[in-house]
């Protein structure tokens, strides 16, 4: 029963990640791509990690996965912020690709 819940969470995370991959190809501007992809990436990662923690039960492996999850949840917005700031400070303007 508890394994079934973990499998359900993993399937939901896979659906979220597939939408993120579609979003990377569907949008025409870099800024809208980074807005969509970072959000979907965070949700998919969090959901699939909760599924893995439930699947591995109460053990040291589950605690290690929890530590990895906390680390990635702290560093993921920072790297998104670094990429967006680098594009903004280098003079990339909104709708630059569609205007050309």
């Amino acid at each position: 029963m508890i394994d079934f819940l973990a499998y359900l969470l993993i399937v939901i995370a896979l659906i979220f990640m597939s939408l993120g991959v579609i979003g990377l190809f569907r949008f025409k501007d870099f800024y809208s791509r980074i807005l969509i992809s970072s959000k979907i990436e965070t949700v998919g990662f969090l959901t699939i990690m909760i599924g893995f923690i439930i699947l591995s039960g109460l053990s040291y492996a589950a605690m290690k996965i929890l530590l990895i999850t906390i680390l990635v949840m702290i560093t993921n917005p920072l790297s998104t912020h670094a990429i967006a700031r680098s594009a903004f400070l280098s003079g990339y303007t909104i709708n630059q690709e569609t205007r050309l």
Binding site: F16, L19, I22, G23, R26, F27, K28, D29, Y31, S32, L35, I36, K39, I40, T42, V43, L46, F88, I94
Partner: peptide, 22 residues
């Protein structure tokens, strides 16, 4: 908020809105 944003991003992908502002 993370889950709310995920749900709202799905609708944006389906509709294909891509206008942004600063």
């Amino acid at each position: 908020q993370i889950y709310r944003s995920g749900i709202s991003a799905i609708f944006k992908i389906i509709k294909g809105q891509d206008a942004v502002k600063i």
